[in-house]
Simulated scan of single mutants.
Amino acid sequence: MKKHIGYITLAFLAFLLFSGTPHAAAKQTSSSYSMIRNALLNAQPTGQFDTSEMTYEEVSDIIERVLQENPEILYYKDAKVWSNGNIEFTYSLPSSTAIAHQKQLRTKVKSILKSVNKPGSSDFDKVKAIHDYLVHNVAYDAGNYKQSTVPAASYTAYGSLINGTAVCDGYTKAAQLLMNQLGIENHYVSGFANGEEHSWNLVKLDGNYYFMDITWDDPLPDRKGNTRYTYFLVTSQSLKKDHSWEEKNWPRATSNKYAFFHDFSNAVETAKHYYYSSNADHNALYRIAKDGKGKKKISNVRAPYFDISGDWIYFSNYSQNGHLYKMKLDGSSMKKLNNTHSVDLWINGKTLHYTNEKTAKLMKLPI
């Protein structure tokens, strides 16, 4: 879900911002861009544009560009743009709140980047870590979305990274903010998905562009420990199956280098491999090397929920009523652990956490 921008029309004297695309035909105005950016970053009620660079009718695209390129900006609502160069900004929350939340956000981003930006990590490793972090730590704000009561924060990186709750704009802007800090080329893209306004990321890795929709990779309802990659580093052709956007405004994504991820219904990463439940093979467990080679089937059991600790895979055996089992990484030594339909498995230290599907009760098992 993408947030709408407000509209007011004041004939002759003022021009209110309308929604545009980041590559719309507008002058590349460094002076006006900088003035608008600085005002919005500081949540100021007023700003300026350079009347020698453009007329007031041309300012709307610059404001939209600023918003789409600077995810640190919080709670912008709309703007009146006057022909004398003045701009009046309106925010959905007080400026003092925006500034305080920006400070919290900066601190949180630094903390997240410590876990993402590990020594020797490639840009791909960092992008995947950002994708996984957001899937694991953010829940889609479905309740408010259904009631049309989505709070302003859920459209922002603050909603994702501090509140842990967001709609699509919050996921997209959080990923954008983190990748910006790492110097990875990426862009905020808006369009439609299944007929509704939506946003996602465009990422450049090793000279190739890829699309990434983290919102649609996060299970709904939220399921802790479940990581999907259906929309992770996909091509334009793949994304077009259920997304639409102004394609002429963006580079085409044509590389299939990471297509093997798209078979991952759920996945766990180890030092050398990805273990995953296969979309194409009824959630059977597979292993594949991190370069996408050496794909191997581990077991025929249907295991949509699983996690790994040491040499063991703990999983919900949907070939046996979803009961909890464990087996070695090579598929041997399978052993039943309970008679309960167990879902949402995740391991913390020496404890396996899961949910009893029938009672919805959270359970623990020492391992």
Rank of each mutant, 00 (worst) to 15 (best):
K27N: 15
Q28P: 05
Q28V: 09
T29G: 15
S32Q: 12
M35I: 13
R37M: 12
R37Y: 09
N38Q: 14
N38Y: 11
A39D: 10
L40F: 06
A43D: 01
T46W: 05
T46E: 13
G47Y: 01
F49S: 03
F49C: 06
D50A: 15
D50F: 10
S52G: 15
S52D: 11
E53Y: 09
M54T: 15
M54A: 13
Y56A: 10
E58K: 12
E58R: 15
S60H: 14
S60I: 02
S60F: 04
E64I: 10
R65S: 14
V66L: 03
Q68Y: 10
Q68K: 15
P71E: 08
E72C: 04
E72F: 08
E72Q: 11
I73W: 01
Y75V: 00
Y76W: 12
K77H: 08
S83T: 14
N84H: 09
T90N: 07
S92T: 13
L93P: 00
P94I: 05
A98K: 00
I99Y: 02
I99F: 06
Q102N: 08
K103S: 14
L105G: 01
R106Y: 12
R106M: 09
T107W: 06
K108D: 04
I112K: 00
I112C: 00
S115F: 08
S115K: 11
V116W: 00
S121V: 07
S122Y: 08
F124R: 00
F124V: 03
F124N: 00
D125Y: 01
D125P: 03
K126D: 01
V127A: 04
A129F: 02
H131G: 00
H131L: 01
H131P: 01
D132Y: 04
L134S: 02
V135R: 00
H136W: 13
H136P: 03
V138K: 00
A142C: 10
G143M: 11
N144D: 10
Y145S: 10
Q147C: 12
S148T: 09
S154R: 09
Y155L: 03
Y155Q: 05
A157P: 05
A157M: 02
Y158M: 03
S160Y: 08
I162D: 02
N163K: 14
A166N: 06
C168Q: 03
G170C: 05
G170K: 04
T172M: 07
